[in-house]
């Protein structure tokens, strides 16, 4: 990515709205919400020029952005596939078969945890408890949760992704 990183006007407007939620001089508080917008707009991960751009908008040092971006699991520090399958693997989901869901995805897509398929379509990102323990097993895909997963349901979801027919946001 070159120095041409810049938000779309709508996004920039949204960023300024977010900054206005915090008192004068506390614009740094907008950092996490703004990084969410940036990640969505610039390819699903946070490249260094993107983080530098965010630093510039918020008038903070680039290091202040890096240290935050690397702390939170929702921010991707390297490229990811178009569809990031975030499958919960924590205890309560495990009690309801998340192991089987994870291995089914690994086998179907022929990737390991954390990897992206060669076609750049899918990344498998095991997640820790996402607050859906009663509707386990589950995964997050974009903005939404897919719950009560079965292998069949996972296959359907993967197919919908391949057809570009699934809501991410």
């Amino acid at each position: 990515m070159s120095e041409t990183v810049a938000f779309k006007p709508e996004s920039l407007e949204q960023v300024h709205k977010i900054i206005a939620r915090y008192p004068e001089g506390k614009q740094k508080s907008a950092l996490i919400p703004v990084l969410h917008i940036a990640q969505k707009e610039f390819g699903g991960w946070l490249d260094v020029p993107v983080m530098d751009y965010v630093a510039q908008i918020l008038n903070i040092k680039p290091i202040e952005v890096y240290e935050v971006a690397t702390f939170y699991t929702m921010f991707n520090m390297k490229p990811v596939g178009k569809y990031v399958l975030e499958v919960c693997q924590t205890g309560p989901c495990m009690l309801n078969g998340s192991d089987g869901i994870l291995s089914h995805i690994r086998e179907t897509l022929n990737i390991k945890n954390g990897e992206t398929t060669a076609d750049g379509l899918f990344t498998l990102k095991p997640a820790e408890c996402l607050g859906a323990c009663g509707y386990a097993p589950m995964m997050q895909l974009g903005k939404f949760y897919h719950e009560h997963l079965t292998k069949e349901k996972v296959d359907e979801i993967l197919e919908l992704c391949r057809q570009g027919a699934i809501a991410l946001d």
Binding site: R21, I32, H36, T73, M74, F75, C129
Partner: peptide, 10 residues
């Protein structure tokens, strides 16, 4: 009242 989103950290 404002809603502030975190980003994944227990």
């Amino acid at each position: 009242i404002y809603v502030h989103r975190g980003a994944g950290a227990y």
